[in-house]
Each structure stands twice: as structure tokens, then as C-alpha cells.
Design a binder for these strands. Structure first.
Length: 590
RNA sequence: GGUCUCAUAGUUCAAUGGAUAGAAUAGGAGUUUCCUAAACUCUAGAUCCAAGUUCGAUUCUUGGUGAGACCA
């Protein structure tokens, strides 16, 4: 157990024993001691003093005295400043952590819990290529799944392909009208981009036709409805639903181009799925649930025979679940899919990685499922993340401000190439080794950039400033790893004298590293990879200070050398492990 | 119009109600006969406004201002 958890436990027990009344770990706070004070961990006493009716000094003195008397192997000293009890953790404990974990590449990982969690992420539309916002989604979903796995859960990663609907018909129609039989093969354009280009062409053609109609006196709304291409697209959707063979064939052909394109991108960024659902298979699900809801009296029917649920008592609105023409709405599909997922995988939790523009949708989805008393209901969790915005605001297809995912990745790798060549440290790499390194650096920088921010918050990307490779970035951490590995290649780890004292930076690094299991738990509980990013950066930064201050290979004594080699090895393992949780590889050299 | 988010150094991000609000970057000053300077050290710089709760508020409550999203 990590010291932070151990502290909560021992302090709770000690308080109960001292004062003969029950305490929980909610009754006090445990923090790292600020560097300007003596000690390692701090108990904040203010919240206890009401319950104990003692001054902070008196309570702290009693608790501190009790802890060092009863847990001498853990605590060796304490001091009280104002309401803060600063505890010094026994050196033997730190050495024990180091000796037992320096070579453990899975330090911090929890044993299996026997509980299964589904993570749905990525979920692209098959009418256009991925953009920067999708990358945030993919990285966040993949990383959350990895963190949950490290925390002991079984993980099922799923993706739903939004492969049908009017938007798909738009690109299909435009291809029929303008392509003259061109294909990704004939043009050499990546399939998802190829199809996306026709989606854009549809928009351009629609705009033309709308302008003509408006010049003839129609309102914008009317014009958009009446425009021939729009009517043709609508008809195509009707034909698709009727299963008209030539429409289905075209749909299959164009979707296969898109999937081929997506596969290349997914492969490059490391997104993978245990199961892909297709909206074309699932869009009719949930219809029987409407009947169930009516039977249970959860839904009600209006005069025009449309079906609704009244959520006004829950502070929300009335929400339609079936149109008057009997067709389903997104909500109904999603309820149906939630049921199917639960039947297939029996996950206790189902996490939907979807942007915060759908907060309302998921609030309603979960609530309806709960009212229908579906077994999947309580496990529904919307991992809501903020948009990636440009300095000019949101990315908009129409204004051509969308940052394309493939372009972005290529650019990052190019910057990595340029910087690596400037530094000239890996001239002996083979072309394959070099390309792998550049991919790891460029993609790593991009992933870290998108993951280091709290997922809930919107974030800003400025295309005019390339993403940094210095400071709070992946290349900084990767570089730290490479430097450590360089030492470890040269020096062997042998027996260590455990009685030696720890110098301040050695201690600081070790205290920092010891926390890793707590950080994984917190990141898993909050579905928040940015906690891992912030943590691994702190470890790398502390290591660099240590590295500058102290020699390892040429340490003052053999004992110091062995201690520091262990610190190096543990740091390398934690950096590699934490970065892996973010989907980022760390090189041996760079 | 209704609902929901957000507001912290010039800029991009941190801070379970706790000690002097942390980083990065940009700015200023330094460090390389010694394990990789994509590094390190020092320096300057911020909680939108106004009330309230509290021993203590960036954090909680209310009102205001500003930005965004969703629902029609």
C-alpha cells in the first residue's frame, strides 16, 4: 500500500484508539508537506478540533506522539505548525519501497477486480475524415481504458460507426453527380478524405442552388428544403431504408473507402477496439422499449400518436422518444444500444467518451433508462470532454477552419524530424529506427498536448504556434527517459547498503515516485488521464534536477552509486509505465 | 427565452475548503574539461466584480459582468 493510503488508515485507527470514538478518513486531510517545512506528509488538524474540543497544538501533539510510539517503523518524527501536523516518514520505509519496486515495470498496477467496464470512444461519422477534436476523443478514450485496466478492471473497448443517415447520403449523391467514376485508387487520395471531399462538394452545390432559389424569392429555410440536391439526398435516404440495391451498393462501396482510410489513421495513432457497432445495424433498436415504456406508464402518447417522456419533475423537459410517423429518434436508438451492449458484455459500467455538447442528451438517456428500470441504467457514465477550440473559436467545416487529424500528425512528425536532425544525436540510426523514433516523438508530443489538460475543460489550439517540444511536453519526458537508459546501459545493479542516508534530491525523487499507485487510482476513479500526465512530468522534472546535482556512474561511493542506480531504474520504469497509460512510447535513445 | 458549463501571470495550463496560489512558455541573468544542454539554476509576473457562509474561500452560496454549449 502506498504511504498516503497507509497514513489514512493508521491515523484513523490511532484517533479511534486515542479518543475512544469512531473516526473515518473523512475527518482529516492528508497532504504532502510543503517543501519549506520539516516532514514528508501533513495531517490537517482543523477539521478534528471541533470533534475533539482541543486546541490544534494539543491534538497534534497527542496524535503525533501516538503515531511515532506505535508505528516506529513508519514514522520517526513530527512537528506542529499552526494546525498542521507534519510527519517524517521513516527512512527505512523509503528504502524498502525502492528496494522492492525499482525493477518492477508494473509498479502501481492493481490486481484484477473481476469487474468489467466498457469504454466507447472515437465513434466517427463515415462521411468525412477525422479532425483534431476526434483526436482528443480517441486519445482520451484509449488512455482512460488503459488507466482503468491498470487499476484492475477488465476493459471492453467499443466504437460505434455512424455509418447511415442524411449526411452519408449527401456525400453519396455528390459522388454520383460529380465524380465521373473516380475512386480513391484512381486519384491516389486516402479514402476518408476522398469521401469527405464529396461531402464538401455537396455543401457547395447546395449553397449555389439555395442562392438561386432565394433570388427567386424563397426564404433561406424554404430554399434549403426545396433545393434539388437536398431533395435527392432525402430520397436517397428513403431508398436506403427501403434497401434499394443500387443505393446499398454505393453506400457499401463508399463506406469501405472510408474505413480503409480510418484504419490507416487508427493504426498510426494506436486506437483499437474489441467491438465495433454500426449504426446501420443498431438504428432500429429500442423500438420495443417504447412499447415497454408505454406499458409501464413511463412514456405517454400525445394526440398525434407521438410518444414522449415527461422529465419536468427532474428539472428537464418533455422529450420525444417516437415520432408521430413511428420512426425512432437518436435517444431511442441509444437506449436500445445500451441494452444490447449490456446483454452482450454484462459490464457494470459503460463509459461514453462523447463531447460536452451532448451533456443534455446523456443526462436524459441515463434518466430514461433508470425510469425503465433497465439493468444497464446505473452503469451509464458520460465521460464528457470539452471542445478543442482555435483562437477564432470553434472549428467549422464551412469556414474551412477544421484542423485535419492526418495533416496534424504529419506536421508533428516533421517538426520532430527537423529538431532531431538539428541536434544530430542519432546519426547512427537506421532509417527504420529513425522513423519509429520520429513517430514516437511527434505523436507523443501531440497526445501529451491533448491529454495534459483536464478532459472536462475546453482547450485551445493555436495552429500558428507549433506544439512545443520543451517544458511540460512529451519530448521532455521522453528525453529524460533516454538519458536514464543511457546510464543503465553502462552500469550494473548489485547489492546495496541500505543504512546510508538519503540526500534531499534523492529523497524528493523517491517520495515523488512512491505516489504512483495513488495517482493511478485517482486517475481511474475520475477518468482523468491529465492526472497521469501531470504526475509523470513532475517525476521527470525532479529526476532532471537530481541528475544535474548528483553523479550516478561516478558517484562519491559505491553505495551511493547503487542507491542512485536503483532510483534511475525505478524512474525509468515509472516514466515508461505512465507514458504507456497515455499511449505514448518512450525511446531508449533520442 | 429556458437549462448547463467556464472565467487564475502577456499566453497555455495546475491547485479533495488549508500553510507564502504552482508549472510551462514568452521576458531578464547565468550553467557544458564530468553519466545526452530536447537539460539545469536564479529572476520578474495572476485568482473577472460585489456580497455571504467559515477559524480559513481560487474552491461553497447568491447577485452582476463576460465567453461558450445545448434545448426550441
Amino acid at each position: 500500500m502506498a504511504i498516503a493510503a497507509l497514513l489514512k488508515e493508521t491515523v484513523t485507527q490511532s484517533l479511534s484508539a486515542l479518543y475512544q470514538q469512531p473516526f473515518t478518513d473523512k475527518d482529516f486531510q492528508v497532504n504532502r508537506t510543503k517543501p519549506e517545512f520539516e516532514g514528508d506528509y501533513t495531517i490537517v488538524l482543523f477539521s478534528l478540533i471541533k470533534k475533539l474540543k482541543k486546541s490544534p497544538e494539543a491534538a497534534g501533539d497527542e496524535l503525533g506522539g501516538y503515531l511515532i510510539a506505535n508505528y516506529p517503523q513508519l514514522f520517526t518524527d513530527y512537528n506542529i505548525i499552526k494546525g498542521f501536523l507534519n510527519l517524517t516518514v521513516a527512512k527505512a520505509y523509503w528504502i524498502w519501497v525502492l528496494e522492492n519496486n525499482h525493477a518492477n515495470g508494473n509498479y502501481g498496477h492493481q490486481p484484477a477486480r473481476g469487474e468489467r467496464v466498457m469504454v466507447e470512444y472515437s465513434s466517427p461519422n463515415t462521411n468525412k475524415p477525422l479532425h483534431l477534436g476526434h483526436l482528443r476523443n480517441n486519445f482520451l478514450g484509449w488512455s482512460s481504458a488503459a488507466i482503468l485496466k491498470a487499476s484492475g478492471y477488465d476493459i471492453i473497448k467499443t466504437c460505434i460507426a455512424n455509418d447511415r443517415g442524411i449526411h452519408i447520403c449527401k456525400s453519396m449523391l455528390a459522388w454520383q453527380l460529380f465524380a465521373n467514376g473516380a475512386t480513391p485508387q484512381s486519384t491516389g487520395i486516402k479514402g476518408d478524405h476522398f469521401v469527405g471531399d464529396y461531402y464538401v462538394l455537396f455543401g457547395a452545390e447546395l449553397k449555389k442552388q439555395v442562392e438561386v432559389l432565394m433570388a427567386a424569392g424563397a426564404s433561406k429555410e424554404e430554399a434549403e428544403k426545396q433545393a434539388p440536391v437536398m431533395q435527392q439526398a432525402q430520397q436517397m435516404l428513403v431508398d436506403w431504408e427501403a434497401g434499394k440495391p443500387e443505393v446499398i451498393d454505393l453506400w457499401k462501396k463508399m463506406n469501405s473507402w472510408v474505413y480503409a482510410g480510418f484504419d490507416i489513421t487508427y493504426n498510426r495513432i494506436g486506437s483499437d477496439f474489441d467491438k465495433t457497432y454500426y449504426e446501420s445495424d443498431t438504428y432500429l433498436l429500442g423500438k420495443d422499449l417504447v412499447e415497454l415504456g408505454l406499458e409501464k406508464g413511463v412514456f405517454f402518447q400525445k394526440e398525434d400518436s407521438s410518444v414522449w417522456i415527461d422529465l419536468t419533475a427532474d428539472g428537464l423537459d418533455e422529450k420525444i422518444v417516437r415520432r408521430k410517423d413511428g420512426t425512432a429518434v437518436y435517444m431511442t436508438q441509444d437506449i436500445g444500444l445500451a441494452v444490447r451492449k449490456y446483454e452482450e458484455y454484462k459490464c457494470t459500467k459503460s463509459i461514453y467518451v462523447v463531447g460536452n455538447e451532448q451533456d443534455y442528451h446523456f443526462k436524459v438517456l441515463k434518466l430514461i433508462c433508470q425510469k425503465l428500470d433497465l439493468p444497464a441504467a446505473d452503469g451509464i457514465f458520460h465521460l464528457s470532454y470539452g471542445m478543442v477550440e482555435l483562437p477564432t473559436g470553434r472549428m467549422k467545416t464551412r469556414e474551412g477552419t477544421v484542423v485535419d487529424a492526418d495533416d496534424m500528425i504529419d506536421e508533428m512528425v516533421n517538426v520532430a524530424r527537423q529538431k532531431t536532425e538539428e541536434l544530430g544525436k542519432v546519426k547512427d540510426f537506421s532509417p527504420e529506427e529513425l522513423n519509429e523514433l520520429l513517430d514516437n516523438i511527434g505523436l507523443g508530443a501531440l497526445k501529451f498536448f491533448l491529454l495534459r489538460v483536464d478532459p472536462k475543460k475546453k482547450m485551445l489550439f493555436n495552429p500558428d504556434e507549433s506544439i512545443d517540444f520543451h517544458g511540460f511536453t512529451a519530448p521532455f519526458i521522453q528525453y529524460t527517459h533516454a538519458r536514464i537508459k543511457s546510464i543503465l546501459r553502462k552500469e550494473a545493479i548489485t547489492a546495496m547498503d541500505i543504512s546510508q542516508p538519503l540526500l534531499p534530491l534523492e529523497k524528493e525523487l523517491l517520495v515523488e515516485m512512491e505516489q504512483y499507485p495513488v495517482i493511478i487510482e485517482q486517475a481511474a476513479a475520475e477518468y482523468n488521464p491529465s492526472l497521469i500526465a501531470n504526475y509523470v512530468y513532475a517525476v521527470a522534472k525532479t529526476f532532471n534536477s537530481f541528475y544535474t546535482e548528483h553523479k550516478v556512474a561516478n558517484a562519491e561511493t559505491e553505495e551511493k552509486k547503487q542507491l542512485r542506480l536503483r532510483l534511475c531504474q525505478m524512474a525509468a520504469n515509472i516514466i515508461a509505465s505512465a507514458m504507456a497509460l497515455l499511449g505514448i512510447k518512450v525511446p531508449e535513445r533520442m
